[in-house]
Amino acid sequence: MRILGIETSCDETGVAIYDDEKGLLSHQLYSQVKLHADYGGVVPELASRDHVKKTIPLVKEALKEANLTSADIDGIAYTAGPGLVGALLVGATIGRSIAYAWDVPAVPVHHMEGHLLAPMLEDNPPPFPFIALLVSGGHTMIVEVKAIGEYQILGESIDDAAGEAFDKTAKLMGLDYPGGPLLSRLAEKGTPGRFKFPRPMTDRPGLDMSFSGLKTFAANTISGNDNDEQTRADIAYAFQEAVCATLAIKCKRALQQTGMKRIVIAGGVSANKQLRLELEALAKKVGGEVYYPRTEFCTDNGAMIAYAGMQRLKNGETSGLGVKAQPRWPIDQLEPIA
């Protein structure tokens, strides 16, 4: 079975083709970073219009890369949510229309389930069950995963997502958009121990998180110190250290609560080197393992949607002739795969 996946939930247009026997056959991605850079963040209307321009050309490129034609495709998977409603509608309507034209089924895919299953694209995929830390610009949550579709949210951010906090703090430091990766690179030059940021909500029980206070703490630290390059690097180091340590503490509690040993990290922030080091150290202490996708599949991409869509189509799920776009869609509302 070969599935063409389409991802248009925010500011990246991704198209990929996945074969259940041969694996990933092609992967095309277009980022809108330059389009939104002048505005310091994603402009939903511009994002939607750009998806309209880029999706069909990327579908053609994905077919060309895989040396396939439309007759070789057995189904279409598209991101139905969560995300920006206009952007979702572009991918959903294009995906459903292509499926109708090619006479194949279409299936709506949950964006965060796509991220959660992205490590399955690797040579050493994680076996079930495991704890998943999903960290991106829009979501931060810890999920107990027993099987595909069997998800229980154990904790999540009550305000800013971790990636959002990275981007907002980077903006306070005068870094360009998107600031999260730039802040992480600046932190590599930082001096450990010069600044100490709090670990929010770690002094109380539970697995919920909060990152908006770290942004405020960073703003006060920036305004109270010189703006030389080393000071900025030291603040970036302390901020990143606090976010990663907080996430690691919450993951440790999740492992203790569930008795599990395996951790999956996915989403854009899962590419952060410091976070990977923190969780690898945690896994080593508890005799467990950490799994994550390669860097290019940490951010939004069509490959994860194609893979997740394949699992759903094999389970007999389709959208019929309808088009589904659900900007708010809790992951624990998904049906388990039989």
Score class of each variant (00 low, 15 high):
H115K: 13
E7G: 10
L84G: 08
D72H: 07
P82I: 04
E144R: 15
A66F: 06
R294I: 11
S26C: 12
L35I: 15
N220R: 15
N227E: 10
I148M: 13
G14N: 10
R185F: 00
G95V: 02
A254D: 06
V107L: 03
N301I: 11
R194T: 14
K324H: 09
A101E: 08
A219V: 01
V107F: 02
E45P: 02
E21L: 10
K196Q: 12
G86Q: 04
E188S: 13
F130N: 09
R276K: 14
I249K: 00
A170I: 00
P127H: 07
V15H: 13
R96Y: 04
D203G: 14
C298P: 08
E335W: 04
G190A: 01
G180C: 07
A338V: 10
V269G: 12
E122R: 09
G259T: 01
Y39A: 14
E113A: 08
A266M: 04
L88S: 08
D123G: 02
E156D: 06
L58K: 12
A219Q: 14
K171R: 15
G322H: 11
W329I: 10
R328G: 01
K252S: 13
D228E: 12
A62K: 00
K171C: 05
E289A: 13
I305E: 05
K284D: 12
G174N: 13
P192K: 04
K34R: 14
C244S: 15
P192C: 09
N272Q: 13
G320I: 06
I142S: 01
R253Q: 13
D50G: 00
A306E: 09
D203Y: 06
T318C: 07
P293N: 07
K189Y: 07
V323C: 13
L334F: 05
V109Q: 05
A147H: 09
K189W: 01
H115W: 13
D167P: 02
R199C: 04
T318H: 10
T258H: 03
L46G: 05
G149F: 08
K34W: 06
E113L: 11
Q152D: 15
L334K: 08
S48Y: 08
R328F: 09
C10V: 06
K189D: 12
D50N: 13
I56R: 10
F195V: 09
T299A: 08
E144P: 00
L313I: 12
G213P: 08
T13I: 02
A87C: 15
K324A: 06
L183H: 04
T221M: 11
E21C: 04
V107P: 01
P44E: 05
E335T: 12
G288V: 11
I235M: 08
P82M: 03
D11P: 07
